[in-house]
């Protein structure tokens, strides 16, 4: 493979992978603190995008309860400038975080306080996802919504680099997603390892029983976790939506399955692992030669299968100790 092609594939891989990574950050957070997979994450991701859209554009389509509603006939104050959009983004993500909190109270806490089988949490979160996705469709229909092209200001749509005589390209919005996922990773890492809240979260992750004996309110910290996970999910959803549009209420749910492969590959419970896993899968998909592009979808899962057999704790997870 010649150099240009190789570099282009790497750029493509990072481009695709950063979407997976940013989705997986919130996904793995819940697993790292609570040991459960929250299937409603895809729905919260989607909701975040819709919330920000409502604040920044606020024009709905011809289906659903809110059909033909136009909140800002003269354009939204938050949608016409970059700082405005960032504000809408933050508010939308906070709203998504609050939805995460509500989900925790209603669909997870009763199971947790009973010490129930974690699998029931899976089914419960599935039910929540079903409710949220169909609620979105009921309110605003299944049509496509998208953000104005200039939400990030007057950025060029793609970065073109010269490698020798040829060109390699990458879309600037994907660079933004990559950068934001890195920033979020650093912030999250700092939060978990350097702050008091982070210490409490790590204690809860290790042993909720002892933590609560030591005076840590497990319930409260679980709430913080869900808020943070929802915030990250909503943030991710909005960013991805600025790149690809909101393709209907199911737009986030379709990442849920591949997100599983990402967080297992990276290491269940490892936060840097989510980003590494995402990028690795993105790279693997980008390097699939054209003749086999039909099987690109299966690449992530083939990787998943192999890593489970060879190194189940994933790339960055801690080795599992067999407890007798």
């Amino acid at each position: 493979m010649e150099l240009t092609q190789f570099i282009q594939n790497v750029l493509n891989g990072v481009s695709i992978g950063s979407v997976y990574a940013i989705f997986a950050l919130g996904y793995t957070l819940i697993f790292s603190i609570l040991g459960i997979i929250n299937f409603a994450h895809g729905a919260v991701f989607t909701l975040g995008a819709y919330f920000t859209y409502t604040l920044a554009v606020g024009q709905f389509g011809i289906n659903g309860l809110l059909k033909n509603v136009d909140l800002f006939p003269n354009g939204s104050p938050l949608g016409s400038s970059v700082p405005g959009f960032v504000l809408a983004l933050l508010i939308g993500s906070v709203l998504a975080g609050l939805v995460g909190v509500v989900i925790e109270r209603l669909a997870f806490r009763p199971l947790r306080s009973r010490g129930a089988d974690p699998l029931l949490a899976l089914v419960s979160s599935l039910g929540v996802a079903l409710v949220l996705v169909n609620l979105i469709q009921y309110l605003v229909g299944a049509e496509i919504y998208s953000f104005p092209a200039d939400v990030y200001g007057n950025l060029k749509p793609a970065l073109v680099l010269h490698v020798g005589e040829k060109l390699v390209v990458i879309r600037t919005v994907q660079i933004i997603i990559f950068v934001v996922s890195m920033i979020m990773l650093i912030i999250l890492g700092y939060l978990i390892s350097r702050t008091k809240i982070g210490k409490a979260l790590r204690a809860v992750a290790e042993n909720p029983g002892t933590s609560s004996l030591l005076g840590i309110s497990v319930d409260r910290y679980v709430l913080y976790t869900f808020f943070l996970s929802g915030f990250l999910g909503g943030l991710a959803g909005t960013l991805v939506a600025t790149s690809f549009g909101i393709a209907g209420p199911y737009f986030g749910v379709t990442y849920g399955l591949k997100g599983l492969a990402v967080i297992v590959l990276g290491g269940l419970g490892s936060i840097p692992g989510a980003v590494v896993g995402g990028i690795v899968i993105g790279l693997a998909e980008a390097f699939v030669p054209a003749e086999y592009s039909a099987y690109k979808e299966a690449v992530a899962f083939a990787l998943l299968f192999v890593i489970l057999l060879v190194r189940p704790q994933g790339l960055l997870g801690r080795a599992l100790v067999q407890k007798v």
């Binding site: 209603l106 669909a107 009763p110 199971l111 009973r114 129930a116 089988d117 029931l120 949490a121 089914v123 419960s124 599935l126 039910g127 929540v128 996802a129 079903l130 409710v131 949220l132 169909n134 609620l135 009921y138």
Partner: peptide, 17 residues
Amino acid sequence: RLIINGLVLVVASLYLP
């Protein structure tokens, strides 16, 4: 229909251990 379906799943997993 599907909203109620989802709620039934949630309620059943919460209250039918």
